[in-house]
Computed example of a mutant assay.
Amino acid sequence: MDLSAKVSILGLGIMGAAMARSAARGGLDTTAWDRSPGRASGLASGNLRIAPLVRDAVQDADVVVTMVSNADAVLSIMTEREGLAAMKPGAVWIQMSTIGVEGTERAWRLAGTRPEIGFLDAPVSGSKAAAEQGKLVILASGDQGRAGATAQPFFDAIAAQTHWLGDVGQGTRMKLLFNAWIAVLMEGVAEVSILGDALGIDLGRFTSLVSGGPLVPAWAVAKLQKIKEGRTAETEFPLRWAHKDVQLALAAAGEERARLPILSKIDAIWAEAEPGFGADDLSAIYLALSNGVKR
């Protein structure tokens, strides 16, 4: 790993903060920024510094990472806050936020206004714990030959696996499938839990019977346990962002949306749940359904 690489992380939410810590722990010279100064406080240590302005964070960086909530936030950081203009020639912008196909195309077009800057579309899959442990899965797309070597030290620091999927946009498309799959699984976990309540079955016993078997992946077992233990307020992935990702998947489907009835129903259910449970963990959809969210 090239430990001389300088990395800038823009966005210090659950995943961005964890990635910044992993990069710094991996020996990379890391600078981070967040639009909420309070969120950044306490992160600075060792190889990790906090910058007051986006341009201060990116001006010396070899790799600039955007990890924020939506496409508008990404574009605002890179235009209004001068992120792209302040990047040095030869640096690589890695767009890792989940912003959908149209949002990724907007970011790519913006990157094209500075052709001397590399651009990668590289969303990640993995839990908060995986991010903290540097064991994410990266779904990378773009010019691997031009930008990949520059990005690789950062990828090595934060991920257990990096998959190169082709041209810009393929990473985002794969991430939409990942998150649609998660949404369908989570709705299933929540509804099975409610059915168990109705049948008088202890959820812990059900979880122990299905754990390690072919029916339930480890991620779903963890969500079952979270529901059983009443820890849905311990947020790993907020319900509101999961709902946003369902909407991005449906938008990307275009005319095929009519053939996605389950995802469309999940969109409607989670839209009703979001006002009360949006900041909680995705598993809080169980509580929303238990409290009478209409099916």
Rank of each mutant, 00 (worst) to 15 (best):
P275V: 14
R257I: 00
A233F: 00
A251T: 10
L289F: 06
P275C: 13
A268F: 01
E272H: 09
R259F: 01
D267C: 11
A279C: 07
E234H: 08
G254L: 04
Y286F: 15
Q247I: 05
G254T: 08
I285T: 14
R257M: 04
Q247P: 00
P261H: 05
N291R: 15
A251F: 05
A253I: 03
A258M: 02
L239N: 09
E236N: 14
D280P: 10
A253H: 05
F277G: 02
A252D: 08
E236Y: 07
G278I: 07
N291F: 07
E274G: 12
E256K: 06
E234D: 13
S264R: 09
A249E: 00
E234S: 06
W241H: 15
P261C: 05
P261V: 00
I266S: 11
A242W: 01
S283M: 02
A271E: 14
I269P: 07
Q247F: 00
A273M: 12
E236A: 13
R240D: 06
L287E: 08
A253S: 12
L289D: 07
P275T: 15
F277L: 13
A268P: 04
G254A: 06
A288V: 08
D281A: 13
R259E: 08
A279S: 09
D280W: 15
L248W: 01
K244Y: 02
V246W: 05
W270A: 10
L239A: 13
E255C: 02
I285A: 09
P275W: 15
A271G: 14
Q247V: 11
A288K: 09
F277Y: 15
L239M: 12
A279R: 15
L248F: 00
E274Y: 11
A242D: 11
S264E: 08
L260S: 02
Y286N: 12
T235C: 10
G254H: 07
A242K: 10
E234M: 04
A284I: 01
E256Y: 01
I266V: 11
T235E: 05
T235G: 06
D267L: 07
D281S: 14
A253W: 03
K265V: 00
L282G: 03
E255L: 01
Q247A: 10
L250D: 06
R259W: 00
D280H: 15
W241Q: 15
I285R: 13
I266E: 02
L263A: 13
D245W: 07
L263P: 05
P275Y: 15
S283C: 05
L250H: 09
G254D: 03
L239E: 09
L282W: 09
A268T: 14
L263N: 11
K265A: 14
G278A: 14
E236Q: 10
A253V: 01
L289M: 12
L260C: 04
S283Y: 03
K265H: 08
Y286Q: 11
P261D: 01
L260A: 06
Q247H: 09
A258Y: 00
D245Y: 03
L282Q: 10
L260H: 03
S283A: 12
A271C: 09
W270T: 14
P275L: 13
